[in-house]
């Protein structure tokens, strides 16, 4: 029997904490609840969790500040919980070191999918160094710089390849425009969303209808592969 995932949830809404605890078997997840930023930080230091769920609207401290102070001393995956319409805050939080986000209202499967992706990337850093990547018929051979959809090879420009490679290395995670621009084009191009859109459009078209849809748009935030 595998150890349960240890999750610290920092949210001042008791009903949210309660339904999450009730929805998931205690063998799967061990919940540690905190209703304030101060309590959350204390619990994280005490229990050394696998994942942290952090609500951005806490009563005692600004969520972004909490995130930054956590990132000073821990690399634990942090998933932020926010409301719809706060895309700007999501981007700030992601650029400040959050691993992913879930928009309230969220469903239990949606949240757990995000938790599993964050855990996969945190536990197994070798993911980012693997020689190949495969997802629903999309195959990337990083050593040969070769991309296939089904059995057909797809010819990409160096920029398109780089873009796809960055998405694949972080598959399942949302990547902000800034992050993609700095990884693919370099830190001097952080505002060039126009360029990013053009290349992303071309990349998707080359990946053909079904595979192009594997890259999902998170409007106002970024892109996610898978």
């Amino acid at each position: 029997m595998a150890e349960p995932i240890r999750i610290v949830i920092i949210d001042d809404e008791a009903p949210i904490r309660r339904f999450l605890r009730a929805s998931i078997e205690p063998e799967d997840v061990e919940w540690i609840e905190a209703d304030s930023a101060a309590e959350g930080k204390r619990q994280i230091a005490r229990v050394n969790p696998d994942v942290v769920l952090l609500d951005l609207g806490l009563p005692d401290e600004d969520g972004l500040e909490v995130l930054r102070s956590l990132r000073d001393w821990t690399t634990v995956p942090i998933i932020i919980l926010t409301a719809r319409g706060q895309e700007h805050e999501k981007v700030l939080a992601l650029d400040a070191g959050a691993d992913d986000y879930v928009t309230k209202p969220f469903s239990v499967p949606e949240l757990m999918a995000r938790v599993r992706v964050a855990l996969r990337h945190a536990k197994d850093t070798s993911i980012e160094n693997e020689a190949t990547f495969e997802l629903d018929g999309l195959r990337i051979d990083f050593s040969a710089r070769r991309v296939e959809c089904g059995d057909e090879e797809v010819r990409l420009t160096p920029t398109e390849y780089k873009l796809l490679a960055v998405l694949a290395r972080h598959s399942g995670k949302v990547l902000t425009h800034r992050f993609l621009l700095s990884e693919v084009w370099g830190p001097g191009y952080l505002e060039s969303t126009h360029t990013l859109r053009v290349h992303m459009g071309a990349l998707r078209q080359k990946l053909l209808a079904n595979h192009g849809r594997l890259i999902r748009t998170e409007t106002g935030v970024g892109y996610r592969l898978g």
């Binding site: 809404e13 009903p15 949210i16 339904f19 999450l20 009730a22 929805s23 998931i24 409301a83 309230k104 209202p105 969220f106 469903s107 239990v108 499967p109 949606e110």
Partner: peptide, 18 residues
């Protein structure tokens, strides 16, 4: 309105997956 709705929606989604 939105805070309780988020809990209702989340709890229902949790119930469906039991």
């Amino acid at each position: 309105l939105r805070t309780p709705l988020a809990s209702i929606e989340g709890a229902a989604s949790g119930l469906i997956q039991q």
